[in-house]
Simulated scan of single mutants.
Amino acid sequence: MKLNRIKRRNGNSLILELTPLIDVVFLLLIFFLVATTFEDVDSSIKIDLPTSTVKSTKAVDELQVIVTKEREYFISYKEKGKNKREKTSAKELKNALAQKLMESQDKNVIISADKSVSHGVIVDVMTASKEAGANSLDIDTASPGK
């Protein structure tokens, strides 16, 4: 593409310089790329429970509440390096958790429930855990194929 020279009245020709124009366009492009926020695809919640492909990177030493199909409640914990498990009832769960959470450092509770247990039972366990003093709750899931 040939640029036509524009003749001025005084006889000098005027050439349109494209280099500064291209610089400005690239600066605007970079500004808009940096200023744009992108949606984080990995932050979506997966509802396909109880299996999960996410693997835990740390050993489980936290307090764990186990709920069976028959709605039996167990509290599993480590004491002096040994795994211990105590059976409890739904009514006594909050008090038993409060006692164990007082001895725990990180105040984390892992909920492991059978997939046939209703959602309401899991919510009741979560409520009891929070009322007992848990700082964080985790729901245990199995890896696919197990």
Rank of each mutant, 00 (worst) to 15 (best):
N108D: 11
E72K: 14
D106E: 12
L97V: 06
Y73C: 04
S104L: 04
V125A: 01
K82I: 12
V123K: 04
S76I: 11
L93I: 14
E92G: 05
V121K: 00
K100C: 07
D124W: 01
M102L: 13
R85W: 01
V123D: 00
S76T: 12
Y73Q: 02
G120E: 06
E86V: 15
E79Y: 11
A113C: 12
R85P: 01
T88A: 07
L93G: 08
K82F: 14
F74N: 08
G81A: 10
S112N: 13
T127N: 12
D124R: 11
S76R: 15
K91F: 08
D106H: 11
S118A: 13
I75C: 05
K100E: 07
K78C: 06
M126C: 12
N83A: 10
Q99D: 14
G120P: 01
Y77D: 04
K80G: 03
Y77L: 11
K84L: 15
S104N: 10
N83I: 10
L93S: 03
T88N: 07
K91T: 13
S112M: 08
A113D: 02
A96W: 01
R85N: 11
K84W: 04
K100G: 04
I75H: 00
K80R: 11
S116R: 10
K82G: 05
E79K: 14
N108Q: 14
K115G: 06
V117N: 02
A113T: 09
L93N: 07
S76M: 09
D114H: 07
K78N: 11
V125Y: 01
H119W: 05
I110K: 04
I111G: 01
V123I: 09
E86H: 10
K82V: 15
M126R: 03
D106G: 03
E72W: 03
K107F: 06
N95Y: 10
A128V: 06
H119C: 03
Y77M: 07
K91L: 06
S104P: 02
N95K: 14
S104G: 05
I122Y: 00
G81L: 09
S104Y: 09
S89V: 06
